[in-house]
């Protein structure tokens, strides 16, 4: 029962965020300033998700800029791979491989 309420509620708030703007905003005449601001949605949202996952990988452990941060090393590997190959598939495979290699090396140290 609790699960039904939880899933129903999650569905409502998620759809309630996704659908209304998708269906309605195009029909409004938005000022050009707003359209210009919307260009920055993809980089801003992605960076806001990525940064804490890479720089704050452990809960309550604070900023981790050291080489002992496997998430940071894997993330850097992914940035370089995407920058130079422009291939998302290779980037995902290489980034995860670098992350696991770093994790393994750190566990040895």
């Amino acid at each position: 029962m609790n699960e039904v309420v939880m899933i129903g509620g999650m569905m409502l708030v998620t759809f309630g965020m996704r659908y209304p703007t998708l269906a309605l905003v195009g029909k409004l005449n938005l000022p050009p300033q707003v359209l210009r601001a919307l260009k920055f949605v993809p980089p801003a949202v992605l960076a806001a998700i990525i940064a804490p996952a890479v720089f704050l990988p452990q809960e309550d452990a604070g900023l981790q800029l050291a080489l002992s941060n496997a998430h940071l090393l894997g993330g850097l590997a992914a940035v370089l791979m995407m920058r130079y190959t422009k291939n998302l598939l290779l980037t995902i495979v290489f980034g995860m491989a670098a992350f696991w290699l770093a994790q393994w090396l750190i566990s040895l140290a």
């Binding site: 960076a47 998700i49 990525i50 996952a53 995407m82 980037t91 995902i92 980034g95």
Partner: peptide
Amino acid sequence: IVTFIGML
């Protein structure tokens, strides 16, 4: 996260 980096 690696996928999102590739997207960014």
